[in-house]
């Protein structure tokens, strides 16, 4: 039951893009075309889940026993950077087709704040789903990370579809590009607000 609540909450209620504002750079940057948005979402999904798993283990088996939790930021960003490099190399060898699809997005992900954001969130914040507020355990963390990245993908793909339609319409000159995209995102965020109170 709690896993279902985590999933619904992470995808709809606390959508990482539209209510937490993490990962806005790729959200605005690569959402011009639906196909690139799908590719980016796939790559982000993969990296967020993997990065959260590794950083969670690193936090509780290395940083906490040694008493150096303040090294969190430096350690996590290095782990994420290394992980992205590794995923790139492994993918190139194991599945060239998938590498072709995700390849160009992977280097961009290191500086996507959603990845570091989720990794830090699960080890610093307490979550409450109906019951007592508590730190997430390993299984919950991974499910939370995966659901969050699904939420990222959902918002990204919806937004790219909207932007493809807007590109065909007449837009006042000063609104061209980013401003009209932001207005669209605002309306999309308003729609997602309808989910608040669900969990």
């Amino acid at each position: 039951m709690e896993y279902i609540l985590i999933i619904i909450s992470a995808i709809f209620v606390n959508n990482i893009l539209l209510s937490q504002f993490m990962g806005i750079c790729p959200f605005l940057g690569v959402s011009n075309k639906l196909s690139t948005a799908v590719g980016m979402s796939g790559a982000v999904c993969f990296v967020i889940t993997l990065a959260t798993l590794v950083t969670y283990l690193f936090q509780y088996y290395v940083l906490v026993p040694l008493g150096i939790e303040f090294m969190q930021t430096i350690a996590f960003i290095l782990i994420i950077a290394a992980l992205v490099q590794m995923v790139e190399i492994v993918l190139k060898k194991v599945s060239p087709a998938l590498y072709q699809a995700l390849g160009i997005f992977l280097p961009l992900i290191t500086t996507n704040c959603a990845v570091l954001g989720v990794a830090l969130m699960v080890v610093t914040n307490e979550f409450s789903y109906g019951g007592e507020p508590h730190m997430l355990n390993l299984g919950e963390s991974v499910v939370f990370a995966f659901a969050t990245s699904l939420g990222f993908g959902l918002a990204m793909i919806l937004f790219a579809g909207l932007r493809e339609q807007i590109a065909l319409n007449k837009v006042p000159k000063v609104f061209k590009g980013i401003p009209i995209a932001l207005v669209t995102a605002s309306i999309l965020a308003m729609a997602f607000m309808g989910f608040s109170g669900l969990v």
Partner: peptide
Amino acid sequence: VLAPGAFMALAYLIV
């Protein structure tokens, strides 16, 4: 103060 307002305010300030 909520999320949609952030996008909207930024859009109009950029314009």
